[in-house]
């Protein structure tokens, strides 16, 4: 416990130094506040956006609409990716069929899907969800697949010789066996999904944090852009924090066994 206090002190010092330096650079007139807004301008802008609508909604409403889209795309990626990965780990044939397609898709950046997303699902929620999905899907599949491959073969055989159906093997053996790997994958997946969402919002939709950012840019309001960046960072951090807690909990529970 003794070491935690100095460590925290370093973290605080580094933040104070960063924001202090930032403020000093702008106050001293080294750069125009038009190019780089000062932290005080940003805080002021953040408070304003929380009480007065900008681009059609309050700041937290934009944030919520982004989070909603994120959950949609991420949830869909997990709901399809995890069972697919588990099945690929279980059935060699499926693995052989899916792998080439999957390897091709994996190296296409999520943003490269934006034109198709807009074309197929429009610029409403559908297009955005598809972009997040393409970002979040791969780690779900890969980690579920790897996790399933690492499940002790004897457990699967024990299930088989005790009459379990394939569905039950998936649900009661592969899924819990692969869970630590799956949760680790979800964390990567969420990070990529959240990043792709902002990308998508910059282009295809008319609400959300990414949209606020674009509006800030075209209104020549750099403090709005920075405020959006802060919100993006904070929400991303919160998502990662939640999933990291889940990962630790699963790992602790599973490692005891």
């Amino acid at each position: 416990m003794k070491r935690r206090i100095p460590l925290l002190a370093y973290s605080i010092a580094s933040l104070v130094l960063f924001f202090g330096g930032w403020q000093a650079v702008v106050s001293a007139g080294l750069v125009s506040s038009f190019v780089l807004p000062s932290p005080i301008d940003v805080i002021d802008r953040t408070i304003t956006m929380m009480i007065r609508p900008f681009a059609g909604a309050l700041l937290w409403e934009h944030a919520l609409s982004s989070i909603g889209r994120f959950l949609g795309g991420f949830g869909l990626a997990a709901a399809i990716g995890i069972p697919l990965g588990l099945m690929m780990g279980r059935f060699r044939l499926l693995e052989d069929i899916v792998t080439p397609l999957f390897e091709g898709y994996r190296y296409v950046a999520p943003l490269a899907w934006v034109p198709f997303a807009a074309l197929w699902f429009g610029t409403g929620i559908g297009g955005a969800i598809m972009v997040i999905f393409t970002g979040a899907f791969a780690p779900c599949v890969i980690n579920a697949y790897r996790g399933a491959r690492l499940v002790d073969r004897h457990l699967i055989e024990a299930a088989q010789t005790h009459g379990a159906s394939e569905l039950r093997i998936g649900w009661e053996v592969l899924l819990p066996g692969a869970l630590p790997s799956i949760v680790a994958g979800l964390r990567i997946s969420a990070g990529l999904g959240w990043q792709s969402l902002i990308g998508a919002e910059l282009i295809v939709v008319s609400s959300g944090i990414g949209y606020v950012m674009i509006q800030g840019q075209s209104n020549l309001s750099p403090e709005t852009v920075v405020t959006s960046m802060l919100v993006i960072g904070l929400v991303g951090l919160a998502i990662d924090f939640g999933l990291r807690a889940a990962e630790t909990a699963v790992r602790r529970k599973w490692e005891g066994q």
Binding site: H154, L155, E157, A158, A159, V173, P176, W254, Q257
Partner: peptide, 9 residues
Amino acid sequence: FQQFALFPW
């Protein structure tokens, strides 16, 4: 099985 193969969870 020799390895027991009980479901740990």
